[in-house]
Nucleic acid binder design. Structure first.
Lengths: 210, 210
DNA sequence: GCTAGTATGAAACAGCCGTTTGAAACACGC
DNA sequence: GCGTGTTTCAAACGGCTGTTTCATACTAGC
């Protein structure tokens, strides 16, 4: 049965996404992935070449699905204001990082890869991250106007991304310091609102001064 | 010779700091630490109980030395403005995260621990991190005034910390995206300046609106 | 100078890891 | 029904890990 063949491969792929996202590449074990997928230990080396190729496959599929489900432009109309576009960018970034379910582990994986490259970094992350930074820079330029120097604009772009990634990277200690913080699909809405507001306010003031 | 006894223990401690900071707890191996320290493999289990106790010892010593060398208040006079105190906070935070040399690996270790707790988190990080957040909140309150709700102030505090930690967590990909960025003792000065300026501008605007 | 207590050393241990193996089970074209 | 090619399975392999062992070297007190 061909359907069953695809099924095991797909089951391993999905299980790998969860385990890699939860444990990181190094700590994730092939044995745990296969057990979660209900497959034999040799399934990884049979359907993919090895653990690393499986990881790349997970990243590839995750990238495709995440951008389909949460496009960085948020699906806004062309007449949207720069502030609305920034809010959509921030919000979709949050969603990719925290959304539950199968297609969403990509954000968590990329956040991990960002901090601890596994060698796939040069192939994948740069190709996924640079376009995001470029899009953000264009939005911020529309808000700040043409007079703000490029270097200052870049620093502001990093400040925006930093505020979003923080909630992913620092989540373990954040949950301990402020247990009332809920990082669910609803819980991130006020956070996306805050990051947008905070950043627009800062950018406007800085652009006015320079 | 007692001096030599302490010397090996100290050498292992320092080597462990470097290796843990560079590789993380899981990837760091006792063999590499001992080799770097010029000590026997059994030195770790003899002078400390095991790898985990060595890690705790490194964290303890690092915390002590880092706070001595880079105090969070920056050694400011009592008459300093809130903006100056925020700048000192941000700058000393950057320095603890990026300073080179033996005592400085603590910042890198805590940044790692923040993202991937090893179990020492509950003992150490909370006890080290919570006071920092409290100090930051007091500074931000002085800037924002008494009318800004506590929840909004907390979100702003997270935004400040996020902008600093970003340069540590995202360093690998940041170096690829913007190779001209130098994260040395001199290079972080304009970054500390930017984070302070960005945050003060945002906080003032938000406080005025609320 | 000899003993007691401590520090170092080489070697081995048990456990987990990714990967490989070769046989068994399966589906499918003829 | 039979042979072929593909997928699954249990078992084992080699390598690396933290830790332990026990013999040796050393220092200090009498």
């Amino acid at each position: 049965m061909t359907a069953s063949d695809i099924a095991t491969r797909q089951r391993v792929l999905e299980a790998a996404g969860e385990v890699f996202a939860a444990r990181g590449y190094a700590k994730a074990t092939v044995r745990e992935i296969c057990k979660l997928a209900g497959a034999n230990l040799a399934a990884v080396n049979y359907h993919f070449h090895d653990k690393n190729a499986l990881y790349e496959a997970v990243l590839d599929q995750g990238y495709k699905l995440a951008l389909e489900k949460y496009p960085p432009d948020g699906g806004l109309s062309a007449s949207a204001t720069p502030e609305q576009r920034l809010h959509a960018f921030v919000r979709s970034f949050f969603l990719r990082l925290f959304a539950e379910g199968a297609p969403a582990c990509h954000g968590r994986l990329m956040a991990r890869e960002l901090a601890e490259p596994t060698g796939v970094l040069d192939k994948k992350v740069e190709q996924h991250v640079r376009p995001l930074f470029k899009l953000l820079s264009e939005i911020l330029r529309d808000i700040a106007g043409p007079d703000l120097p490029e270097a200052a604009l870049k620093r502001c772009g990093r400040s925006v991304v930093a505020q979003i990634l923080f909630y992913r990277h620092a989540q373990p200690v954040l949950q301990r310091l402020e247990p009332e913080l809920k990082l669910t699909a609803q819980g991130i809405e006020p956070l996306a609102q805050h990051v947008t507001e905070f950043s627009v306010a800062a950018l406007r003031t800085i652009a006015r001064r320079k």
